[in-house]
Amino acid sequence: MQVLRPASIADALAMLAGGDARLVAGGTALQLEWAKGLPKPRSLVDIGQIGGLTGITLAGNGLRIGALTTLGALERDATVREELPLLAAA
């Protein structure tokens, strides 16, 4: 398995279009899938180095949560606790 590290969202999308690849930020979801015996992809596209993918902001009538926002950040965020208390508690 190869790990690809794109520098931008456009690069990541191009890498995904190339075939058997999966996005990965922290990898927890993939580890859970593999523990269930699901097949591993040929490539992982690690988006951890792409800027601008963290943070929690109010967007319209909901929240926008960046793909690289950690669970700890969700737990500590006052807006999440106020607007989505079940998510904060989970």
Rank of each mutant, 00 (worst) to 15 (best):
P85M: 08
D11K: 07
R76H: 14
K40L: 14
R76K: 13
T79P: 01
T70D: 05
A10E: 15
L63F: 04
Q31P: 02
D77P: 08
E75H: 14
K40P: 02
S43I: 00
A88M: 10
R5T: 15
R76W: 04
L16Q: 10
A17H: 08
L16Y: 03
L53F: 05
S43C: 08
G52D: 04
T79D: 15
V24P: 00
G18F: 06
G55W: 03
D20Q: 06
I56Q: 07
I50Q: 09
P41L: 00
K40S: 09
T54W: 02
V24N: 01
L68V: 02
L71M: 10
L53T: 03
A17G: 10
L63V: 12
L38R: 08
T28K: 09
A17C: 07
L32C: 01
R76S: 14
A88V: 04
P6D: 04
R81G: 15
L68I: 04
P41Y: 00
E33R: 01
G48D: 06
P41A: 01
D46V: 01
L84Y: 13
R64K: 12
G26N: 09
I56W: 07
A73E: 07
L87E: 06
L53V: 04
Q31W: 12
P6E: 05
L4E: 03
A14H: 11
A29L: 09
G37P: 11
I56C: 10
L53G: 01
L71A: 03
G18A: 13
G51T: 10
V45C: 04
P41H: 00
G62V: 13
A29Y: 04
L86T: 14
I65C: 06
E82T: 12
L84T: 03
L74C: 14
L16E: 02
T69A: 04
V80W: 03
D77E: 11
G19L: 11
P85Q: 08
L13V: 06
S43L: 00
G72T: 05
N61M: 11
A25E: 05
G18R: 15
A88Y: 03
L4I: 07
I65N: 08
K36E: 11
